[in-house]
Amino acid sequence: MNVIDEAGVLAISTRLQRLSDLIRKDGLQIYKAHGINFEPKWFPVIYALHKKPVLSVVEIAAEIGYTHPSTISLLKELEKQKLIRSKRDKTDERKRLIQLTKKGKDLVGQMKPVWQLIVAAVTDLINTENNLMEAVSEVEDQLKKKSFTERALSLMEHQQE
């Protein structure tokens, strides 16, 4: 056991990041094994545009739960790869509408069977006594009710009383 493991809940963010990195790294290997050149970090945008074919930058950020700057960064990478294209909204010139290119749609077609495999593998992985997806959902719901910061500040106030 290393010091981060020993830190328990103090290191939750580090542990979740480590878990995410491991799954993402393996995801990359799974795509490569199927001859697909795809970065797992692109998944949220590609999947959002697969499900909702035309979205503004703000809508994509909301759909994937990323900040606007993080979303812009991903969009630039995907545009460079020619997987997405943007056009100006005819009703609002300030708004950019994003959609998959033919190359992006073809990539999604290649990835769909791999997604089924990934779902099966992840389902097997998280099928533990304390199902990870259920726990993540519960924690996300708790954060919607009261942020981590609010909780810490509230505890601080109670300690001072």
Rank of each mutant, 00 (worst) to 15 (best):
L83H: 00
L83V: 00
I84N: 00
I84F: 01
I84W: 00
R85P: 00
S86H: 08
S86C: 06
K87M: 15
K87S: 15
K87A: 15
R88E: 09
R88A: 14
R88D: 05
D89A: 09
D89I: 06
T91E: 11
T91K: 12
D92A: 07
D92S: 08
E93T: 06
E93Q: 07
E93A: 11
K95V: 12
R96L: 12
R96W: 07
L97K: 03
L97S: 01
I98T: 01
I98D: 00
I98R: 01
Q99H: 06
L100K: 01
L100H: 01
L100Y: 02
T101P: 05
K102S: 11
K102N: 11
K102V: 10
K103N: 07
K103W: 03
K103P: 02
G104V: 01
G104F: 00
K105N: 07
K105D: 04
K105Q: 06
K105W: 01
K105T: 05
D106G: 02
D106T: 04
L107V: 06
V108W: 02
V108G: 06
Q110E: 15
Q110I: 03
M111Y: 00
M111E: 01
K112F: 04
K112T: 13
K112Q: 09
K112I: 15
K112E: 12
P113H: 02
P113R: 01
P113M: 02
V114G: 05
W115E: 11
Q116W: 13
Q116Y: 13
Q116T: 13
L117V: 09
L117T: 12
I118S: 02
V119Y: 06
V119D: 07
A120F: 06
A120R: 10
A120N: 09
A121C: 11
T123P: 09
T123G: 15
T123R: 15
T123M: 14
D124K: 14
D124L: 10
D124Y: 06
L125K: 14
L125F: 14
I126T: 03
I126R: 01
I126D: 01
N127T: 11
N127G: 13
N127V: 05
N127I: 03
N127L: 10
T128S: 13
T128D: 10
T128Q: 15
E129L: 03
E129H: 05
E129Y: 03
N130M: 12
N131D: 15
N131C: 14
L132V: 13
L132E: 08
M133V: 13
M133P: 04
E134D: 14
E134Q: 07
E134H: 07
A135Y: 09
V136R: 05
S137F: 15
S137G: 15
S137Y: 14
E138Y: 11
E138R: 13
E138W: 09
E138F: 11
E138M: 10
V139H: 13
V139G: 07
V139L: 15
E140Y: 10
E140M: 14
E140C: 11
D141V: 06
D141G: 10
D141A: 14
Q142L: 09
L143A: 08
L143S: 05
L143R: 09
L143Q: 06
L143Y: 08
